[in-house]
């Protein structure tokens, strides 16, 4: 599967990244190389093989529904790039719902 510049541009928006045109060209070529390399997986017949999403065999891990203290708001807000002491602040979402 050859990778096009337009596809890379679309993926960039999906990933919320922006690149200059030169960066996009370089990225398209680098990603293309990597994808060509990983295409070797297609030579393997994996019909009926169960995908492995976890390395651990752990199952049924739950915590009791018992409240524990939250963090003080000052502590949370200290790390926020923009806040008013009560809320996080972000640029208007403009019609984005």
């Amino acid at each position: 599967m050859a990778l096009s510049l337009e596809e890379v541009r679309k993926v960039a928006l999906l990933a919320r990244l922006q690149f200059t045109e030169e960066e996009l060209v370089e990225l398209t070529s680098q990603m293309g190389d990597i994808l060509k390399y990983v295409d070797q997986l297609s030579e393997l017949d994996t019909e009926g093989i169960e995908p492995m999403a976890h390395a651990a065999e752990v199952q049924n891990v739950f915590a009791d529904d018992i409240q524990q203290p939250s963090l003080p708001r000052e502590v949370i807000m200290e790390n926020a790039p923009k806040h008013d002491g009560k809320y996080y602040r972000v640029p208007a979402v403009l019609g984005d719902e």
Partner: peptide, 19 residues
């Protein structure tokens, strides 16, 4: 294990996990 109680002061029911 943050509380789910409705109506608390904004951003007072959060912790490293839910944030």
């Amino acid at each position: 294990r943050c509380s789910t109680k409705f109506g608390a002061e904004p951003n007072t029911q959060t912790c490293p996990v839910c944030i």
